[in-house]
C-alpha cells in the first residue's frame, strides 16, 4: 500500500498549479477553472485524511464541497456572462475598477 503522504503531496502539487494558474492567467473562465482545480486538490486531501483516520467525515465534507462548487460554478459563470455582456470581454485586466 502506498503511503498516504504521497496523496497529500499530489494534492499540494495540484493546489500549487491551481494557484499559479489563478495568478498568471487573464481569462476569467480559465481562472475559474483553476479555482476548480484548487478545490479538487483540497478534496483529494480531505478524502486522504478520511482514509487515514478511518472516518467518514472527510467524504461527507467533500460531498458538501461539491455542492458548493456547483452553486459557485452556476453563479460565477452567470457573473462572467453578465460581465461579458457589459464589457464585451472576459479579460480580468479590463475590470480594474477597484482603482479610482
Amino acid at each position: 500500500m502506498i503511503p498516504l503522504s504521497w496523496y497529500l503531496i499530489l494534492s499540494g502539487i495540484l493546489f500549487t498549479i491551481g494557484v499559479i494558474g489563478v495568478l498568471t492567467r487573464r481569462n476569467a473562465i480559465v481562472i475559474f477553472m483553476c479555482i476548480e482545480l484548487m478545490l479538487n486538490a483540497v478534496n483529494l486531501a480531505f478524502v486522504t485524511f478520511s482514509r487515514q483516520l478511518n472516518s467518514m467525515d472527510g467524504q461527507i465534507f467533500v460531498f458538501f464541497i461539491m455542492t458548493v462548487a456547483a452553486a459557485e460554478a452556476a453563479v460565477g459563470l452567470a457573473i462572467i456572462v453578465a460581465l461579458f455582456r457589459n464589457k464585451g470581454s472576459v479579460n480580468v485586466d479590463d475590470m480594474n475598477l477597484m482603482k479610482w
Binding site: 455542492t67 458548493v68 456547483a70 452556476a74 453563479v75 459563470l77 453578465a82 455582456r85
Partner: peptide, 19 residues
Amino acid sequence: IASILLFAAVLGAIILAKK
C-alpha cells in the same frame, strides 16, 4: 442547508445572467 444554497444559487444565476 445545502439545498437552500443551491436554490439561492439558481436564483442568483438566473438574475445575473438574464438579459
